[in-house]
């Protein structure tokens, strides 16, 4: 069982959260020329590292806010959690 510290609500069990994937991928900017390659990178390509991974979670059974979590994908250690608007 993971215990995730929601920056809004404090330490809660994993059961209250829903996973949202890699938080480092950036959506191509609107109203700019975007190549197929850029879309490919954003939609499909993932580093999926073994080790530190910055990822999105939603506190779906709590405050319903999206948050960022830095977690080790091998040991599941959580290093820090951030509001979605904050940069790591």
């Amino acid at each position: 069982m993971l215990h995730i510290k929601c920056p809004h609500c404090g330490l809660r069990s994993q059961n209250e959260f829903s996973y949202g994937g890699d938080a480092t991928v950036k959506r191509p900017e609107l109203n700019k020329d975007v190549s197929d390659k850029d879309w490919d990178n954003f939609v499909y390509l993932r580093k999926s590292p073994r080790g530190k991974h910055l990822e999105l979670w939603q506190h779906i059974s709590g405050c319903r806010q999206w948050i960022k979590v830095e977690r080790d994908t091998l040991t599941h250690e959580i290093f820090k959690t951030l509001k979605a608007s904050e940069e790591a």
Binding site: Y19, D22, R50, H53, E55, T73, H76
Partner: peptide, 8 residues
């Protein structure tokens, strides 16, 4: 799946 990236 467990539902989040994992190598565990």
């Amino acid at each position: 799946l467990d539902g989040y990236n994992s190598y565990a």
